[in-house]
């Protein structure tokens, strides 16, 4: 599998993290996204007319949607670790995956405004991201009551992996972790997953 990658994009990190946790090789093609905007070059627009990263290529499969890429990589996991098979847990996983890839894109944007000169209203985006972190913190607080340490059960799923970068990188757009205690504990558990890797902005404690 080839990942057209930019190291500082959290969406690319989401794919690298998943591949690492599922023990799959990714061939990285590094794209000069900032400041070069290479993903908007003629060559790249042919691969993805939306002019965005990440892009995943696997033989004749070309994927550009974050959720589609994540599901594809998770389904290729020989040990099928991160997509539950039981209907309820599976549905909950997809529910939170949608939250991670859709709603939480405001956090991705807030960070891009703060760090990478992207256009947008940084203050409003940060406020929206904060409201969403509260939703997630409330949810994980309830999960803990029934002994479940992750968003869709008692083990980490694809949704947790997709959610983790937004929280771990929020200090990049000046949103601190102080007021999300349940998220702090969850993020700490995520760090202990076999295959866990970091990216610039996420400290490696060891």
């Amino acid at each position: 599998m080839i990942l057209h990658n930019y190291d500082l994009y959290e969406d690319c990190y989401r794919v690298r993290l998943l591949a690492s946790c599922t023990e799959q090789e990714l061939e990285l093609v590094n794209v000069d996204a900032f400041p070069g905007a290479e993903e908007k070059s003629e060559t790249y627009l042919k691969l993805n007319p939306l002019g965005r990263l990440p892009i995943l290529e696997d033989g004749d499969v070309i994927l550009r949607d974050l959720a589609a890429i994540l599901i594809y990589v998770a389904e290729k996991d020989a040990k099928a670790r991160f997509i539950p098979t039981e209907a309820k847990a599976r549905a909950a996983m997809f529910d939170w995956l949608g939250f991670a890839c859709g709603d939480l894109s405001v956090a991705t944007q807030a960070r891009a405004v703060a760090l990478l000169d992207a256009p947008g209203d940084g203050v409003a985006l940060r406020a929206q991201a904060r409201a969403l972190f509260r939703v997630l913190d409330d949810h994980l607080t309830r999960q803990a009551l029934s002994g479940q340490g992750y968003v869709a059960g008692d083990t980490a799923t694809l949704a947790d992996l997709a959610l983790f970068p937004a929280f771990a990188l929020s200090r990049d757009f000046n949103l601190d972790h102080d007021e999300f205690p349940a998220l702090r504990l969850w993020a700490r558990r995520m760090r202990t997953l076999p295959g866990f890797i970091t990216m610039p902005g996420i400290p490696d404690y060891h």
């Binding site: 601190d176 972790h177 102080d178 205690p181 349940a182 702090r184 504990l185 700490r188």
Partner: peptide
């Protein structure tokens, strides 16, 4: 400044 259970051994948190 925090619930005891939310600060696990070996961790830190910022409070104001």
């Amino acid at each position: 400044v925090a619930l005891s259970a939310m600060i696990e051994a070996g961790t830190s948190a910022g409070v104001v």
